[in-house]
Write a protein that binds this DNA or RNA. Structure first.
Lengths: 343, 343
DNA sequence: TTTTAGCACTCACAAAGCGAGAGTGCTAAA
DNA sequence: TTTAGCACTCTCGCTTTGTGAGTGCTAAAA
C-alpha cells in the first residue's frame, strides 16, 4: 500500500477514533470543531480526498461524511495502536479478581469472559483450555449401582471427563478400583492410541474400559473443548449497526453455533501464530463474519494446554482498547494456567 | 373471573391462535374470512366486546383489531390447551436423539436446549441436574506437582467438582491416595456439615482437605448449578416484538445474568410444585420479565438430583406447542437422569 | 506550493400532508 | 338473537417539501 504522509496518518487516526465513538460519518467541519484543529475544513477535505483515494475511507453517499473502510481500520490497527495498553490500575483490578478465584478453572473462564465483555462493550468468547493431545493422568471407576459404572478420566493438564458405562459383566467396587489403579499405572501419560494398545495382563473387564477411555480421549482430541463460554451478548444489541435485525441475528448465530466458532478460532489461532489476532470484516474469506470483527488471542501453556479468548463485535470497534484488554487477559490466563498445571 | 360462554371460549381460542401466528391484531372480518366461520363479522364483534369487557382482549387503539391480554393468554393456557401433545413421530425422533448420547450428561443438556429451541422458536434454558443437598460419594486426590493437588469430588447424583489445592505440607501420592480412601469411606453419603465434623483418627493432612471439601459442597449447595445452558438466542431476534432493541436487550440480559435466572427458576419451581409452569408477562411480580413469558419445568429424580428446563420468549407465544415440548423433554430427561443415577 | 475562503450543488433525513383500508360501534331490520 | 348497513376513527404507507450537513471546485491569500 502506498505510504501515507504523517499528516494523513494523523487524520486517519482521528477519523477512526471519532467514528468509533460517535458512530456517524465524520465530516470535515465537525472534525475541526470537535478537536479544535489548527486547520481549515478545506484542508481536512483535501486530505480526506487523498485518504479516500488510498482506500482508507469511503463515503456512504455523496455529501455525507467519511467512514473508515476495512483497510482503513486495518491500517489503524497495524500502525496506530502499537503502544496502547491498559491503565495499570485497571490491570491490578483485573488480576486481583482472577487470583481471588484460586484454582477454579471454570470460574476463570467466566471471569475472563465477563472482564472482556465489560472492557470492550461487545460480546466475548472464551474456550476452555485443552491439551493439544489428550494424555492420560488418572482413571477412576466408581460403582453407582449393579450395572452402572461412573468413569472419571483426568487428563494431563487437569481436564476431567466423565461418562457412564454399563459393563457386560457386573463387577465389585474392589475389582473396579484395582482396574483403575492398573490402568492409571500402565497408561500414565499415554495418548488415545497408546491406551488402546495396552491390552494384556489386566483384568478381564479392562479391555472394555480401555476401549471407552480411548474413545473419550479421541473425542476430546477431535473436538477440542466444546466448552465455549460467552458473555456480553446483550452488549451487541447496543451497537447501532446491529439495529438491523438480520445482522444482529447473524452475529448471534455465529456465537451460538459452536462448531462454526471453534472452526474459525482453530484456523485463525494456528499453533504457530502468536499474540493478538485481529480479523476485520471477515477479511474476505470468512463469509459469516461479514460486517463483524474479532479480536482474539491464544492463551495457556503451549504444548501443555491452550485455549482461545477474544471478542466479537461490529467492525466499528474500539480496537485500541479492545486489543489491550484481550492481550492483558490472555497474559493473566496464561500465567494462571501455566502456574496451575505445569510440572 | 366471570365464566365465559362456550362460544366466547371458542372465539378466544381462535383469536389467541391467530394472533400468535400472525403477530397482528385480529379483526372480526379477517377472522371470519380466514377460518370460514359460519358467523357474520358483526356477531364476532359482539363477542369481542364481551371478551374485552371480561379483560381477555384489548385493542391497541380504536379501530385496530383485538389482541389478547395477559389474562387472556392465561385463560387460554389453563382451559384451552389441556390435551395438547406432541405428535408421536416427533416424540420418537427426540427420544431417539437422547438415547444416542448414552450417558453423557453434558450432551443431554445441550440436546435438550437445542430441541426446545427448535420446537418453540424462542430461546431455551436448561440447568444441569444437581442434588437438592450435596452428598459425598467419592473423593480423589491427585498429585500434580510437589505442592499442587488436584481434588476431585464426586457427589451422589454423579456431579463432579474439581479444585486445585496447595497444601501446607507436601505429601506423596501414596499418602494422598490413603487420605482419599479414608475420607471416601468415612464420609460416604455425608453432607457438607457432616464432612466438616469428621475430624479425628485421620491423617494429619486430612483436616485441610476436609475443610476444602466441605466448602466446595457448601458452594454447590448455595448456588445450585451455575451451569446454565441456552440455545436459540438468535430465534428471539426473529420475534417481531423484539424489534424494539430495548426489549430485546432486556430479554438477553435476563438470560445471560445467571443469578437472575436461577433465582427466578428457584422461586417458580419450588420443590413442591409439579408439572409445567407458565409465567405470562411476569405475572405482575417479576419486573424483569415484563413483556416476556416463560414455560418451565423441573426434571430429574426428586430427592436425588433435579434441574430445570424451559423456554423464554415474548408473551405472544405458541403456548400449546411449547408446553407440550417442554413437558415431553422434561419427561425424557427425567427418565434419563433417574435411570443413570438412581440406585 | 500550500492553505483557505467562497460558492454552487447534492442528497439523506425529518416533518407534513394525504389517501386508502381495516376495523369499530351503533342502529334497525330480519 | 343475529346480521346488514353505515358513519366514523385511526394507523400505515406514500409522496412532497424544506433543511442542513457535507462535498468538490475555483480562485485568492500566505
Amino acid at each position: 500500500m502506498p505510504g501515507l504522509s504523517n499528516r494523513q496518518e494523523f487524520f486517519l487516526g482521528l477519523i477512526v477514533r471519532e467514528y468509533v465513538q460517535a458512530a456517524q460519518p465524520v465530516g470535515s467541519k465537525t472534525l475541526v470543531a470537535r478537536y479544535a484543529l489548527d486547520f481549515s475544513p478545506a484542508t481536512v477535505r483535501n486530505e480526506m480526498v487523498a485518504l479516500t483515494e488510498a482506500g482508507m475511507l469511503r463515503q456512504p453517499h455523496t455529501s455525507a461524511g467519511r467512514v473508515p473502510t476495512d483497510d482503513g481500520y486495518r491500517y489503524f490497527v497495524q500502525r496506530l495502536t502499537a503502544d496502547a495498553d491498559l491503565p495499570s490500575a485497571e490491570k491490578r483490578t483485573i488480576s486481583h479478581q482472577f487470583y481471588q478465584a484460586q484454582g477454579d478453572v471454570d470460574q476463570w473462564l467466566r471471569l475472563a469472559a465477563s472482564v472482556l465483555a465489560q472492557h470492550s462493550s461487545v460480546a466475548s468468547v472464551v474456550t476452555a483450555p485443552s491439551a493439544d493431545r489428550s494424555l492420560l493422568r488418572h482413571l477412576e471407576l466408581i460403582l453407582v449401582q449393579a450395572r452402572q459404572v461412573q468413569l472419571i478420566l483426568v487428563l494431563q493438564g487437569g481436564e476431567v471427563l466423565q461418562q457412564m458405562l454399563s459393563p457386560q459383566e457386573p463387577a465389585s467396587q474392589d475389582t473396579l478400583t484395582r482396574i483403575a489403579a492398573q490402568v492409571t499405572a500402565r497408561c500414565q501419560g499415554a495418548d488415545a492410541a497408546a491406551v488402546q494398545r495396552v491390552d494384556q495382563g489386566l483384568d478381564p473387564l479392562a479391555p472394555e474400559i480401555l476401549r471407552m477411555v480411548a474413545e473419550m480421549m479421541r473425542r476430546a482430541d477431535r473436538s477440542p473443548s466444546p466448552d465455549v463460554i460467552y458473555d456480553g451478548l446483550s452488549n451487541v444489541l447496543n451497537q447501532p449497526e446491529f439495529a438491523d435485525r438480520e445482522l444482529a441475528q447473524r452475529a448471534m448465530h455465529l456465537i451460538e453455533e459452536h462448531t462454526l466458532l471453534s472452526g474459525f478460532l482453530a484456523r485463525v489461532l494456528a499453533p504457530d501464530v502468536d499474540g493478538v489476532q485481529v480479523v476485520i470484516g471477515g477479511e474476505g474469506q470468512w463469509e459469516d463474519l461479514r460486517d463483524c470483527s474479532m479480536v482474539v488471542a491464544r492463551y495457556g501453556a503451549p504444548g501443555l494446554a491452550t485455549g482461545a479468548l477474544g471478542v466479537l463485535g461490529p467492525v466499528r470497534m474500539a480496537y485500541d482498547r479492545t486489543i489491550s484488554a484481550v492481550r492483558y487477559v490472555a497474559t493473566v490466563m496464561s500465567e494462571l494456567v501455566t502456574e496451575a498445571f505445569s510440572e
